[in-house]
Amino acid sequence: MHPERGRGDVIPNPMKPKNEGCYHLITSDKDDSIQTHLILIVSTCKYKLSEEEFVKPIVEIVRECGFSYEIKRYRERIDTDYSKVIVCGTALMDLDYLRYVDKFEWLKDYDGEVLGICAGYQIIAKVFDNDLVECKKIGVYEFEVVKDNPLIGKGTWKAYFLHRYALKDVKNLECLAMQKDEVCMFKVVGREFYGVSFHPEVLNREIVVNFLHIS
């Protein structure tokens, strides 16, 4: 298997034009409507070197779970023919994605499942009219899951945080977990869209695995 190509039954089609700037794009020569288990992984990294750190670990989990995937970058146009979407995090200094939140307006009409990690959490929050507040957090902290959800059980857990902004209050979102006064996990009301302000790939891989298995 090509190291950057998703496994499964997605076959590259050399005749199909590649989207500019999408260096990991995998296209299918099959009818798009049958790509029921194709996961879209969105990179929010300004620099490719950051993708090794914030996107590749997510790709590894998706691969291990046996799903096919495509990777696109935050500035690209995104189609919505995917069963699930994971919007990854990026470096602490990287705030470029916040200039492109309008590129994620498609989320409002998307009917699949979405997991936003760190920068992805911030993007989902903003698309659904929430205001981020400055809240720098670096390192491992305990958080409390306060509401039943399909990603992680109720109780106290530890997670690795690396962010400058987060939510203290929510609008159109249900708070699922708190880290002190920070809403560190939410669900968009009426959707299967989840946001986590921490990096589950580090200490809470089960969150990503459980998300991939939501049906």
């Binding site: 090794e52 750190e53 470096a91 602490l92 720098k136 670096i138 390192g139 690795y160």
Partner: peptide, 23 residues
């Protein structure tokens, strides 16, 4: 990683860990 990220943040430097979580 936490200590490294904190020092970089204090000095306003980008921090890259390209082998992070690699098998």
């Amino acid at each position: 990683a936490t200590r490294f990220q904190r020092v970089c943040d204090e000095l306003n430097l980008w921090c890259f860990n390209p082998l992070w979580l690699r098998d």
